[in-house]
Design a protein around this nucleic acid. Structure first.
Lengths: 248, 248
DNA sequence: TATTCACCTTGACCCAGATCAAACCGCTAA
DNA sequence: TTAGCGGTTTGATCTGGGTCAAGGTGAATA
């Protein structure tokens, strides 16, 4: 969406919107300068595939803006989303040279890329990058484990509520608003993508969204625009402990 | 099992069975020496809880021998396993001071522990530890994502086959044997623990194990001792691509 | 040798969510 | 203004796996 701004393709790290959250978050000015020299931007359109699982991958990078999904597929076509990449999230794995998952842009997307080799050598030279990457990877592992509980043990209704809670929460942080009053946000995912996230069919997703609406937990401003009236009610529907559970 | 060997409580790092796989794998002699000074061993009996989710955790450590599980629970008791800890696996997260999951010893178990504070300061001083931890965490993240596919999209039969394949594979690596002929191994998990791993009930686990037996995919030497006649047949039942997919 | 207890198996029944099918909605393009 | 199309909703029906209930098995204890 609106991200073909050409200024995006030659930005200084200092102005970068993900400067304080991405792999480079801990870098000092001089380290940033070196990163600046090996980085380049790439733009993807909504729906475009970034890489196919198994393909050779000669870069790593950060999502600057937009959203992408990480998915796994079985031969018969069953697919499971295993990651939802938001701005500042890291793509690729240093030390591996082919992609382990399909990466697809869900919205128009900009990535800040580094050729893998130079990035790897920078990583061993500057501990700040590796430190930050470790932190981010540990966070992703926690998120994956939360997700495993959702996939393995929650009902369809709880799954939908959990997903809405995750999206609402990140939307609130992004826009720096609290989670008290009603919260309205755009769903970045199609019903099918939601189904792939939650291990459901798209019909079940649709039915449960309707059910939550009928029960007054949410309102649909449009098919993709949702209002949550009481976040704690939603957490309750998600089967989550109303307060804790989530790790900052 | 048989791990109350007292020599276990005062071992030199040089002899350690997990020396080349644990967080300390990349450490040089002098780094090892410093680790040696802050480490201590703890023994747990089968069934014993190592920590409860939410408890204060003032140490981190490596599993030296035995097996433990990482589980999440909902208020109503629904349980999902989110990690299976084998020798050399790391427990705890540097920079966090309470446990995020329940950790329970499944067999008798020995852990090599480090008080969190000294370990954290060693980590920032010696990149080799952080580097290895990053590698291990990335591997765990990959495993978690594989598991998400299992939980979200596989049938009960495929889930059981997948779990048996994982255990058979690690058993083969541990005993340094190949995966061609028949493979016999001990199941370290009860039917209930298998169910918690796979997001099933213990009855379904039991039924599907019986079904795989009836169909000649496996033989039960005893309730917990299993023989796989053809590993590729098993992978087939697991819905996995017969060759690739798995990351070393 | 019997008793107990934790673990496992099997059967009968049921229901949440899948599958199959049809229609609807809000675009854009002709 | 209609046709086409991706995404979505809703209905009818089916089924894999859950639930409830009853035994079985084998190792440890008395």
């Amino acid at each position: 969406m609106l991200m073909n701004d050409p200024s995006m393709t030659s930005r200084q790290c200092g102005d970068c919107p993900i400067r304080h959250r991405a792999v480079c978050a801990r870098c000092e000015a001089d380290e940033l300068e070196r990163l600046d020299q090996i980085k380049y931007y790439r733009n993807y359109e909504a729906g475009q595939t970034v890489i196919w699982s198994g393909d050779k991958m000669d870069f790593v990078g950060s999502v600057v803006s937009g959203i992408a999904t990480l998915t796994q597929t079985m031969e018969d076509g069953r697919t499971q989303m295993v990651g939802l990449l938001l701005p500042s999230d890291f793509v690729g794995r240093p030390g591996r040279d082919s992609a382990a998952y399909n990466v697809v842009a869900v919205t128009d997307m900009v990535m800040c890329c580094f050729r893998k080799k130079p990035f790897e050598s920078m990583m061993s030279a500057t501990p700040h990058i590796a430190q930050r990457l470790l932190q981010m990877t540990l966070d992703e592992l926690d998120a994956a484990r939360e997700w495993m509980l959702v996939l393995g043990r929650k009902t369809a209704r709880e799954k939908i509520a959990s997903l809405l809670a995750i999206i609402a929460r990140r939307d609130a942080t992004l826009n720096m608003v609290g989670m008290q009053g009603p919260m309205t946000f755009e769903l970045p995912l199609t019903r099918e993508a939601m189904a792939d996230y939650l291990g459901l069919t798209l019909e079940t997703v649709s039915r449960q969204v309707s059910a939550l609406k009928k029960d007054g937990v949410i309102t649909l401003e449009s098919k993709r625009r949702i209002t949550i009236h009481d976040f704690n009610r939603l957490l309750d529907e998600a089967g989550d402990d109303s307060d804790g559970g989530m790790l900052a």
